[in-house]
Nucleic acid binder design. Sequence first.
DNA 1: GTCGCTGCAAAGTCTTTGCAGAGAG
DNA 2: CTCTCTGCAAAGACTTTGCAGCGAC
Lengths: 157, 157
Amino acid sequence: MSQEINFNEKIVDYTELLNEFKNLLKKNNLKFTIQREAILETLYGSDEHLTPESLHRLMQEKFPNLKIGIATIYRTLVLLEESNMVTSLSFGSAGKKYELGAKEHHDHMICTNCGSITEFVDEEIEKRQHIIANELGFNMSDHSMQIYGICKNCKNK
Amino acid sequence: MSQEINFNEKIVDYTELLNEFKNLLKKNNLKFTIQREAILETLYGSDEHLTPESLHRLMQEKFPNLKIGIATIYRTLVLLEESNMVTSLSFGSAGKKYELGAKEHHDHMICTNCGSITEFVDEEIEKRQHIIANELGFNMSDHSMQIYGICKNCKNK
DNA sequence: GTCGCTGCAAAGTCTTTGCAGAGAG
DNA sequence: CTCTCTGCAAAGACTTTGCAGCGAC
């Protein structure tokens, strides 16, 4: 899969995102199907970090008439991840969780007690990351950062 | 599992590490077995990020006379991770990779082409992470950061 | 029409678990 | 001695794959 859509330019509009998706498919001779669109739309509409399982459940709620198999979700997530349209996180022994990469970039703060995920961005860190990648002769395409600890809520219990 | 060994104080000496491990076991009424020691030692002696599988292989080379089942490795890695003595990384669809947390802290730069992992540290980023965690009322216990891209080697091909 | 896509179910992987004997404390 | 560990094999969870019919283009 080789295509050069630049997802560092933050795409937040769904129509635009959908177009990028269609272009991606066209370039690779893939077809735009109702299932693929539903997956993209569900990911777009969710603030959560979704497992294939939970994405599947969400889709059944959102599109009760659409038949969708878990296998299709797996296949589409692989496709989307390869194309850098979604990124995945994995935490502890839980499985992988996916989120749309086209959202505003952010990092993650993960509570090791309740598992909640808080998002944040820090410009300083973003800058340093680019500098470091450069220093090491690395062509940075993406990054992720997680801070683990006990969240405010759990602390107060 | 609750114990308060502070692995932010970087332990680099194996003997000391071993002692911490023994204390951890004692505190939790667990036994110090030859298998557990071998796992710790193999992790300590490796610069790689190991999957349970590759750790198993390595151990068989290093301790040809020691019988060790893969199940024991899984069980021990879970124990070590829960106790914050090792941390795990997972990248793409590959499984989890573990490394000793007691090593000097560092972050990871992962080549999406060849899968190689380069380690680095940046003081500036470390500082910012603490500041951010504080701002969000988070009790930070650990963090991890990964930069993805194409490494120097792969770029030159 | 063609060729890729989908759901299903079956096959793989990777991890965890139950158990009976072995071994640490 | 007691009670935890271990290896083994079986079970489980999570993913991927083969296939025949369906649907996008």
